[in-house]
């Protein structure tokens, strides 16, 4: 057990290190800003005095490394600074948006993961059958669709023509859970369709890979039923790759959320990020980028740890 703890701690350390380097890169890139952020904010006609005053106000007159450590300290303690555009505290409006985004991602995952596992398992079991070929074609096609295409098709059929679900998801924190879920259904469905294909294909590949190993062949030769082979022989060894697939796609979901949120005017972190980029509101972009990076790295870390735990060979590397 102690070796397990050591491996997990090692990975955790690696994740924190990565996050630290990412924060360094983000800060460094911001330093590269051609001209100055004050120029972008105040326009060309600003006098040198106003520029200097504004620089002092947002603390740009101090050296870069001091500002970096202040920013890092602020990010860690929940103080993300002020938005340039609205002059409001970033931490104040990022919180609810983050929880909205996580809710949307959670609903999408709750639909996509079981569905992908089930369909992928079937495709692996009946490979080269008509079902498998149809699934192959369908997933290949849906991988190629841009998210907004899927989103607008769903809006057209379920909202405009059908009138089942609202085409705009204006959720807020004071809504009841059921109501919130109802308004989130279309964006969640879009995200599901976007990640389902990837997950399905990867599950199928992982299972097929496993089914060709000798011990499965043995089980089949001694006459075990297919269902028993899958559940008792294949699945215990497939958890590693499958969890990997899930985590990889959940991480993708976190990003895919950006486009989908904009289509459905869903008040999440992704929409905030896009708005801030077009307003060139750098502190908000920095904060959002950091949060997205952290979630992404965390999910990948989780999949890493689970695949190590479920595979003794990785637990005791030679």
């Amino acid at each position: 057990m102690s070796s397990l703890l050591r491996v997990v701690l090692q990975r955790l350390g690696l994740g924190v290190m990565t996050l630290f380097v990412v924060s360094l890169i983000i800060a460094f890139v911001v330093e590269l800003l051609p001209g100055d952020i004050t120029q972008a904010m105040l326009g060309q006609s600003a006098t040198p005095e106003t520029v200097a005053a504004f620089r002092a106000e947002i603390g740009l007159d101090r050296p870069a490394h001091i500002r970096y450590f202040e920013w890092l300290h602020g990010m860690l303690t929940g103080d993300m600074g002020q938005s340039l555009a609205s002059k409001r505290e970033i931490a104040g409006f990022v919180g609810p948006r983050l929880s909205n985004t996580l809710f949307l991602g959670g609903v999408a995952a709750a639909i996509a993961v079981p569905l992908a596992l089930f369909l992928g398992l079937l495709a692996a079991l009946y490979r080269n059958s008509l079902y498998d070929r149809i699934v192959n074609m369908a997933t290949l096609t849906s991988i190629s669709f841009p998210e907004f295409f899927v989103a607008y098709i769903l809006i057209l059929f379920f909202s405009v023509k059908g009138g089942f679900f609202p085409g705009i998801s204006n959720v807020s924190t004071d809504l009841a859970f059921g109501d919130k879920l109802f308004r989130t259904i279309l964006p969640a469905l879009t995200l599901t369709l976007v990640v389902l294909a990837h997950m399905l294909r990867m599950t199928r590949a992982a299972i097929i890979n496993l089914l060709s190993s000798p011990y499965i062949e043995m089980a089949r030769l001694k006459g075990t039923r297919p269902f028993r082979i899958i559940v008792y022989h294949a699945l215990p060894n497939a958890w590693g790759p499958i969890v990997n697939v899930i985590a990889l796609n959940l991480a993708y979901l976190v990003v895919g959320v950006v486009v989908v949120e904009v289509v459905f005017v869903y008040p999440g972190l992704g929409q905030l990020l896009v708005d801030s980029v077009s307003k060139r509101d750098l502190p908000v972009v920095q904060a959002c980028a950091m949060i997205f990076a952290a979630v992404y790295i965390l999910l990948n870390l989780l999949s890493d740890i689970v695949s190590i735990v479920s595979n003794p060979r990785l637990l005791h590397p030679r």
Binding site: T18, I26, V274, S276, V277, R280, V285, A289, A293
Partner: peptide, 20 residues
């Protein structure tokens, strides 16, 4: 490259587009 790939490229792209 590992570190660049540890962050979704959309996020990096949005950050860089803000700046440039």
């Amino acid at each position: 490259v590992d570190i660049l790939m540890a962050v979704p490229s959309l996020i990096f792209a949005l950050l860089l587009l803000t700046i440039f």
